[in-house]
Design a protein around this nucleic acid. Sequence first.
DNA 1: CATTTTCCTTAGCTTAGGTAATGAGTTACG
DNA 2: CGTAACTCATTACCTAAGCTAAGGAAAATG
Lengths: 145, 145
Amino acid sequence: MPDLSHGDDAAAVNALRSAVMRLGRRLKHQRVDESLSPTEMSVLGTLARCGSATPGELARKEHVQPPSMTRIVALLEAKGLVRLEPHPDDRRQKVVTSTEQAEAMLEESRRKRNAWLTAVAEGLDEDEWAKLRAAAPVLEKLAHL
Amino acid sequence: MPDLSHGDDAAAVNALRSAVMRLGRRLKHQRVDESLSPTEMSVLGTLARCGSATPGELARKEHVQPPSMTRIVALLEAKGLVRLEPHPDDRRQKVVTSTEQAEAMLEESRRKRNAWLTAVAEGLDEDEWAKLRAAAPVLEKLAHL
DNA sequence: CATTTTCCTTAGCTTAGGTAATGAGTTACG
DNA sequence: CGTAACTCATTACCTAAGCTAAGGAAAATG
């Protein structure tokens, strides 16, 4: 557990927050499927990673309230990107699974995202990119803590 | 300029995108001043860094449309966080400057942000945090490219 | 059983952004 | 010069994506 009370760490924390929020806003504009919101994409990504989940689990994982997830799941189902089945043990819950179509879309969109980030990252040198790549998994862990 | 076409880099890019978007959403909830939106905070940060700017410049820097910046600036002025003066050479434009009150608020809120991020980062070990700290300025540069 | 709790959903609202259209000021060109 | 074209900020209206509050059904608990 790092001690984050030093001036350097405080500065890093500030830089991190500012950069994450600004980058996040720019990423929102780089939708691969114009009709899908960032959170909806994120849900598909989560399902691809975790297999299947109930709406409540998804809401917790995406840090979104249950009613929001209800609408997201309904929309994804209407687009054929997600399948809903009854929960085996609990008739209140449902099980959400991503379809092959969603898989294909995620795979196909990876190239487009890469293209945009590559274009932006052209302003970085090799060393800077190495630092970023080393930090990527950490940032991902942080986002899920 | 790094070559981002390798599999490892593609994976890093994906991790980066996912983490940034998820973290960004969580950061939105950690407002230090409940009445100020993340973008409004970001504008104050930009002004603190760059001194002063016109609404148009701010809109470009924050990747927001001019009408949105008009509203943001008006709100900040109403709160006394920003001062508006006529542009010396161009009577269409205005010059936006942050007040001492805004400076004080930014400084005061730094502790609160640190507290939240520290709490989250307790799940990281020393090595992970070092990687993140090294990447913070790079991420900030990336967000401004 | 009856009560409480949990899970999903429905309904209505809020907020932060965007687009289109306007008006004033500046620049470029005939 | 003076008019045409462009730029900056603004106004008015709209959309998207969340939220809270309230409900209804199923499960857990006494």
